[in-house]
């Protein structure tokens, strides 16, 4: 069994355990009889809490986290930069802009409109990045383009706040921007899961190119691989994964940046083989973070995006400090 398969199996098992814990644990505590009802009586309250509230929320967190972890690994491989994440190229910000626009225009009441609008924002960003990648081969140029795109989308979102006539809509946008998987249903899961599959297929197709890019653009260009096509596949994977994650859960930072670093040493630095483990690590991180946010005794539930950043940033600084010597030569 290869090292990567073994790593994925271990991470997969831990993910299953984390989702099980997220279904079994929560603010409401149950006794033995209620646990029995939760597993045996579909008309009971406990069954409702377990399978219609906690389970879709946990699975949603798993898939959103996997999308972010996958997008982060693709971005870091594509840009050969350990600091890259789904936000760096402006995909998250553009998706957020799409959602904010839909909310302010009254789309929150129409099922799926905000999500579709966020995804459309991500697709637009992805399209612009694909065009930019065709014109500029250096990763630094693509990063600068992405930073400009991100700043523009951020400014446009701020403008929407600025001009929004309704404080309620403003609050909705703000709440959404903070990121959460609260009250997500199986419908949301059905929505985001196919996007993860599509992103995973494109990421898989680009894996060889990402691995070759380890040696730089020139070596990759002369390697015989069709690097132009593989770059486009990588950008599609990152845009679809990020767009779907933002569409369902809002903006959740840090996971896409940190997940690849958690598994990089175990995957021996291979930018192609790190993709699946990064997705699993991202999913695991978000399930655990969401469970922790739910179990933290506060009057108002902590927003997942806030929680991941608060806990994750210091942890990431520690990881970065230990791993820094391995990143670049």
């Amino acid at each position: 069994m290869s090292r990567t398969v073994r790593l994925c199996l271990i991470l997969g098992l831990v993910c299953v355990a984390a989702v099980a814990a997220a279904v079994l644990l929560g603010e409401t505590s149950f006794d033995g009889a209620q646990y029995a009802q939760a597993f045996g009586d579909p008309t009971s309250g406990p069954w409702e809490v377990f399978w219609q509230v906690r389970a879709p929320r946990a699975v949603c967190a798993l898939i959103v986290g996997a999308c972010l972890g996958l997008a982060g690994a693709v971005m870091q491989g594509l840009l050969r930069n350990p600091l890259a994440d789904p936000g760096v190229l402006g995909v998250s910000a553009t998706a957020a802009l799409g959602a904010a626009l839909a909310i302010v225009l009254g789309g929150a009441g129409v099922a799926g409109l905000v999500e579709m609008s966020a995804l459309a924002g991500a697709v637009v960003a992805g399209g612009l990045l694909i065009v930019a990648a065709g014109l500029m081969r250096a990763p630094e140029a693509l990063i600068l383009f992405g930073v400009a795109l991100s700043s523009f989308a951020g400014a446009a979102t701020a403008l929407i706040f600025n001009l929004s006539p309704s404080p309620i809509a403003q609050a909705e946008v703000m709440s959404w921007l903070l990121g959460s998987v609260q009250n997500r249903s199986w419908v949301d899961v059905a929505w985001v899961a196919p996007a993860l599959v599509v992103a995973a297929v494109f990421a898989g197709l680009s894996a060889g190119g990402l691995r070759m890019l380890t040696l730089g653009d020139e070596t990759a260009a002369a390697s015989g691989l069709s690097m132009g096509r593989l770059r486009v596949f990588a950008l599609i994977a990152a845009a679809v994964a990020t767009g779907a994650a933002v569409a369902v859960a809002g903006v959740i930072g840090f996971v896409g940046l940190a997940a690849p670093h958690l598994v990089r040493a175990a995957a021996r630095g291979d930018a192609g083989r790190i993709l699946a483990p990064s997705a699993l690590a991202g999913g695991l991180m978000l399930v655990v973070a969401d469970l922790a946010a739910r179990l933290t005794p506060t009057d108002q539930e902590l927003k997942l995006g806030v929680f991941t950043a608060l806990i994750g940033a210091p942890l990431f600084a520690l990881i970065a400090w230990r791993a820094a010597r391995e990143w670049r030569l």
Binding site: T214, G216, D270, L329
Partner: peptide, 9 residues
């Protein structure tokens, strides 16, 4: 160019 982005064996 001898830059290698990640610590591969």
């Amino acid at each position: 160019e001898r830059h290698i982005a990640w610590n591969l064996p």
